[in-house]
Design a protein around this nucleic acid. Structure first.
Lengths: 138, 138
DNA sequence: GTTCTAGTTTACGTAAACGTAAACTAGAAT
DNA sequence: ATTCTAGTTTACGTTTACGTAAACTAGAAC
């Protein structure tokens, strides 16, 4: 038994900058299933990791149901060969979509860099030659 | 005057695999403003590029209003120094968020790779020792 | 001349992902 | 004993990003 630290819902909410409503919603959608101590939810480290992965998926534009499907791949679940093959296919599909998103990011990065250079030039040019039109405002 | 090819709304819809409703919606939200020929919308190459950028942003999880703000940075608009500085700040902010997303992708990629190896092993292991209906649970 | 075919406007409907308010519970602090 | 302070359930509300249907227009095809 390694660590067994637990968390309350508001601790997790604070850590990840989300509301408790959000965390409960993920449970409604069956992405989380924390333990209970009486009426209160009690989150284990495993739940915290799951939450982190869900939020990562969200930042990458995955829907909750997509994230749910991805999370299922991390579990040692797979029993028969057919299920394993299905999981493997889904995995490769997701990997491919990640590759595409990575390309999207790289393209957008280079676009933003260009824009930055252009604006930087506009700024320094304005400094050098006085920017004829804007002697009024600084 | 380089190219001046134009597109109808359904041509663009077909090319990008979206509906005309979506394209008109983006216009409602002021992300596009195509010309008109009588009552019909007529899209120039510039509009096509904008649409492409909007969809790219969408894939990366940006909201339409975020994309709108980003697209504004590509226009040679900036007039006074204050506006240029604001744009520059927003640009760097977006670049930073892209860097973070890139990290997210890399982490998810390595997670998926691990999962793939695990499942692959489960498959070949099952092949080696027969696995006759898995009489025990994992 | 009518019937297709795209296109248009207007407007109500919808799924996802929460926000927000109300009403309740249970332990801690005063 | 009451008042905080989390936590809980239930349920209706809201925003974003479109879907979908209805009713109209205008040129092309038959």
């Amino acid at each position: 038994m390694s660590i067994s630290k637990t968390y309350t819902i508001s601790e997790l909410a604070r850590e990840f900058g989300i509301t408790t409503r959000t965390i409960r919603y993920y449970e409604d959608e069956a992405l989380l299933s924390p333990g209970r101590e009486g009426q209160q939810r009690i989150y284990a480290e495993k739940d915290r990791v799951l939450l982190k992965l869900i939020l990562r998926g969200k930042r990458l534009g995955f829907s909750l149901s997509e994230s749910k499907a991805i999370l299922a791949l991390y579990e040692p679940g797979g029993s028969n060969r057919h299920q394993l093959q299905t999981m493997l296919n889904l995995l490769r599909e997701k990997q491919e979509s990640l590759r595409l998103r990575l390309e999207d990011i790289e393209m957008m990065q280079s676009d933003l860099l260009e824009a930055e250079e252009r604006i930087s030039r506009a700024l320094t040019d304005g400094q050098e030659n006085g920017d004829p039109d804007s002697h009024k405002q600084n």
